[in-house]
Simulated scan of single mutants.
Amino acid sequence: MSLVDFIKGSYIEFKDKVEWPKWPELQSSTIVVTVSTVLLAIFVFGVDSLFSKSIANILSLFINLFN
Rank of each mutant, 00 (worst) to 15 (best):
S2W: 00
V4E: 15
V4C: 04
D5F: 02
D5I: 00
F6H: 14
F6G: 01
F6Y: 15
I7V: 15
K8I: 12
K8V: 11
K8S: 07
K8L: 12
G9M: 05
G9C: 00
G9I: 04
S10G: 01
S10T: 10
Y11M: 07
Y11G: 02
Y11H: 07
I12N: 09
I12E: 11
I12D: 15
F14W: 12
K15E: 03
D16S: 07
V18L: 09
V18R: 08
V18C: 03
E19F: 04
E19N: 15
E19S: 13
E19G: 01
E19M: 02
W20N: 05
W20H: 02
P21Q: 06
K22T: 11
W23C: 02
W23E: 15
W23P: 03
W23H: 03
P24F: 05
E25P: 00
E25R: 10
E25I: 01
L26I: 03
L26M: 13
L26S: 11
Q27L: 14
Q27K: 10
Q27A: 14
Q27E: 08
S28F: 00
S28N: 09
S29R: 12
S29I: 07
S29M: 15
T30P: 01
T30Q: 04
I31V: 13
I31M: 09
I31C: 03
V32Q: 13
V32E: 12
V33Q: 11
T34G: 01
T34W: 07
T37S: 12
T37D: 07
V38E: 05
L39G: 09
L39P: 08
L40E: 04
L40P: 05
A41V: 02
A41C: 06
A41D: 02
A41S: 07
F43R: 05
F43P: 00
V44D: 00
V44W: 03
F45L: 13
F45I: 10
F45M: 06
G46N: 07
G46V: 10
G46L: 11
V47Q: 07
D48E: 06
D48R: 12
S49C: 12
L50A: 15
L50D: 05
F51S: 00
S52Y: 06
K53H: 14
K53W: 15
K53D: 12
K53Y: 14
S54V: 08
S54T: 08
S54L: 13
S54K: 11
S54R: 12
S54Q: 15
S54A: 15
I55S: 09
A56R: 14
A56D: 15
A56C: 06
A56F: 04
N57D: 11
N57H: 09
N57T: 05
N57E: 10
I58H: 02
L59D: 08
S60D: 13
S60R: 12
S60G: 09
S60I: 08
F62R: 12
I63K: 13
I63F: 05
I63A: 06
N64D: 09
N64C: 03
L65S: 14
L65K: 14
F66W: 12
F66G: 02
F66A: 11
N67S: 12
